[in-house]
Design a protein around this nucleic acid. Structure first.
Lengths: 239, 239
DNA sequence: CCAAAAGTGTTAAAGATACACCCATGC
DNA sequence: GCATGGGTGTATCTTTAACACTTTTGG
């Protein structure tokens, strides 16, 4: 910051990229858009775009998400966005120097995005079928996946993947899907219920989950954001 | 990324800021530089500077660190730098739009930085006496402190605060200083020694720590980077 | 001898794991 | 009835936490 001269620095473009994930049909999905222009025309990419002169990166992320994917204004406004990291390799965009701030968001399984404009090209894609993506988006997505898996261990983030009211079975499926392991139901249940503030019971009629089986009690996300002690995955690996 | 027009976007400046921390005299210290120019002339700030056209943010961080603080080339090259987050509030710099990528680094207690150029103004400052800093650096530093505390729980990062060879007492002091708590020595010892790859014993003569007491065995950082299971702080709080 | 810091051992509580088993529903 | 998923109980093992005690140094 010592040597300051506005004219001396070539223009950097600053963009945001979003790894928006959900759990559908027992698999982790990510929201992608198809690129309409070069470079990478026709390729799938993470939604994102340029940060405007008077907005923060997080504001830009919400705006782009609404514009490009047709998610409702309400959804986008209340969404929990987490900054993942910033990608600044000089050659990550062939056109010019672009520094991109990546964000991660977790959503419950929503209806297929529809809507006008850019949104026409947005859709959910299973993570396994997502690559190759445009630019360095494979890398960003891989980082997002790793971060999400790690965060499930020591935060209440898993409830972000669930609708406002959910069953413990649904919550457990989030863990199993993201981690790719099976968990013991009784133990999972105990763990979740004894962690203060993780979930809170919703009074009223229990709900049928699938067609079969006993109706399950329903819960809401609790007030806590961190899990103490953490819920570690069976075979512990970590960043 | 859809609507691309290089001329349509005003120039963003991209900078890096570094929260370089060490443990000295039982307190966490941060490396600061005194600003020589407006804005915030005379105020203390985190070291940092502009990213050049053909370098990544991480390269810029290492370069600026060497330039501004007089740390040796070797130190800077081998340093573990971790990206903290990116700060992009439109008004964070009064001069123009500056987006800054912040990094955190952990060092063993080194001699006071000295050296030519900008480095003349660099010095270690206890975290408690650091504020107020220039720009939004108080915020960055607070985020760095929180991140470091959290990372000690589930990574081997604490060894970065220690010299290449260290005693378990020194390692324990890192935890106690950063977390601001006292830990039970026998339990700490067991935990560290039973975590594979956290530390490895160095054969040879034990070392006197202070003047008094039994000489302590010496250890080196091990190959592991993550701690499983984690070493949780007594009163669990987390981001 | 005493103080100080390293290192060992022991015990009790808390948490994780692996099950067996019962309950309520659709078919 | 039976398959399916929800929910409860329990025995066992591992990890943590608290603390008593021994060892080796300097003064």
């Amino acid at each position: 910051m010592q040597d300051y001269d506005p004219g001396a620095f070539p223009p950097f473009a600053v963009t945001v990229d979003l790894a928006v994930c959900t759990v559908r049909e027992q698999r982790l999905h990510v929201l992608l858009v198809r690129r309409g222009e070069d470079p990478y025309q026709g390729a799938w990419a993470l939604p994102g775009g340029f940060v405007r002169p008077r907005e923060s990166a997080e504001c830009a992320a919400r705006r782009e998400l609404a514009e490009e994917t047709g998610l409702s204004q309400r959804t986008v406004e209340h969404l929990h966005l987490e900054q993942l990291r910033t990608y600044s390799d000089p050659d990550r965009d062939p056109r010019m120097r672009v520094v991109s701030v990546a964000y991660t968001a977790l959503l419950p399984d929503l209806p297929e995005p529809r809507g006008g404009g850019d949104a026409a090209h947005a859709q959910w894609m299973p993570l396994a079928s997502a690559s190759p993506l445009a630019f360095d988006h494979d890398r960003i997505l891989a980082d997002a996946y790793e971060r999400i898996g790690a965060k499930l261990e020591y935060t209440c983030l898993a409830t972000s993947f669930c609708p406002p009211e959910f069953t413990l079975g649904e919550l457990q499926q989030v863990y199993e899907t993201v981690w790719g392991v099976e968990l013991d139901r009784p133990n999972f249940r105990r763990k979740v219920l004894t962690t203060p503030g993780f979930v809170e019971a919703v009074e009223g009629a229990p709900r049928r989950t699938g067609g079969r089986g006993k109706p399950a009690a329903i819960y809401r996300a609790g007030a806590a954001s961190a899990l103490h002690p953490p819920l570690l995955r069976p075979e512990g690996r970590q960043s």
